[in-house]
Design a protein around this nucleic acid. Structure first.
Lengths: 210, 210
DNA sequence: AGTAGCATCGACTGACGGTCGATAGAGGTG
DNA sequence: CACCTCTATCGACCGTCAGTCGATGCTACT
């Protein structure tokens, strides 16, 4: 039995199902056959749209990163939020964790998904750094922040936020988080060269991670 | 034809060959058969010593981390080096990169090795943080450094050093490195709360990374 | 009705991780 | 020396998986 659909629609179907599976079962533990069963297509169709399983992964990661970057861009443009807050809120808005997508939350970070994670991180840094460039430079101009290496500072804070809270790099226990978040904010303040305690307001916001 | 060897020797043979292959070809692209061919044993023998290919990987990573930590411990104990320098030198001594083992250098960080890398990072942080605890606390006591979260500061600097220079997270070009290293040292100074420029002496040392 | 070509099918392939029952050899015992 | 025991070793075999390919159904245009 053959169901013919327009190319772009099939492609999206495959992408959506694969994303769901990669994120819930892990990339390695999702077989192409798993995807085929759910989308209800034959193997040939899958490989008609994608050259390999890995190509699907890369496309999905670009999607996730792009979605995050869009959310961040909205925050950055919002003049009603104080400048420094905008930067931190953009970082939080960008992380897939904070979005409703609970699916991603738990599963993105298991060791099995190291490949997914690594590709995500690289793509995210490349996409997000320019987004934060402008507000950070403005912070410097306004004297709220003081630093010699703005680009590197952004890269570093994005990296740290991701490794500490998005992935479970340190395998912290639940009760350690408040302390770790405070430390993170303190380090961010120091790198940005803001007044001490300027970022304190973010403690509660991060509190929702558990 | 059967060659019988004492258990521990066989185990080491497998471990050594596997390490060489994982590091040069990548974990995913090394098959158990590749290992068997070189060690010249049958499959059953391999699985007599290890429950899975992954168990071999974990054992290798523990080895690598332990070797690095030993080098770091020697540096930390060396009273002839100024305290602050000891900390940074220990971090550098620990990284597999800076050791003679060029093999590891290039290959550890390709995306194919994401799993190896991720496991390495977790194990390294767990092993290295306590090593640096003591000298950092002493820095604080002596007034060379000022911080509220010493443990978290160590974790952060270890993580940053690894992600920036050991893995190729940012895919920097050769000519960008001097700037990135300077920025890293600047951020480390700020997080540690030292005098500005205290870490300048490390610029050349890092210079050997290419 | 005819046809061009896009989208779909699914049997097949080769490689890989892992299992298992058989067995060779070393060392001990009488 | 004959017998036994236990450990290290062997390699055929299994199920699974990513990826291939020639055949073919379906659509749209002539």
């Amino acid at each position: 039995m053959k169901t013919v659909k327009e190319g772009e629609i099939r492609r999206r179907e495959i992408l959506d199902v694969a994303r769901e599976l990669f994120v819930t079962k892990g990339y390695d533990h999702t077989s192409v056959n798993d995807i085929l069963k759910i989308v209800d297509i034959a193997k040939g169709t899958f490989y008609y749209y994608f050259a390999s399983k890995e190509e699907v992964l890369e496309a999905i990661i670009l999607d996730i990163v792009e979605e995050g970057a869009r959310r961040a861009e909205i925050v950055v443009k919002d003049q009603s939020i104080p400048l420094l807050n905008r930067i931190m809120m953009a970082i939080m808005a960008q992380a897939p964790e904070f979005e409703g997508s609970d699916e991603i939350k738990e599963e993105l970070h298991k060791v099995e998904n190291a490949k997914l994670e690594r590709l995500y991180l690289k793509a995210m840094l490349k996409r997000m750094t320019p987004v934060l460039q402008e507000p950070v430079l403005e912070c410097i101009k306004e004297g709220i922040a003081h630093m010699e290496y703005p680009t590197e500072c952004i890269e570093t804070i994005l990296l740290l936020g991701h490794m500490m809270f998005d992935c479970d790099t340190f395998e912290w226990k639940m009760e350690e988080y408040p302390q770790k978040i405070q430390a993170f904010l303190c380090h961010a303040e120091r790198m940005l060269g803001t007044k001490e305690g300027e970022l304190n307001g973010f403690l509660q916001m991060f509190g929702q991670i558990p």
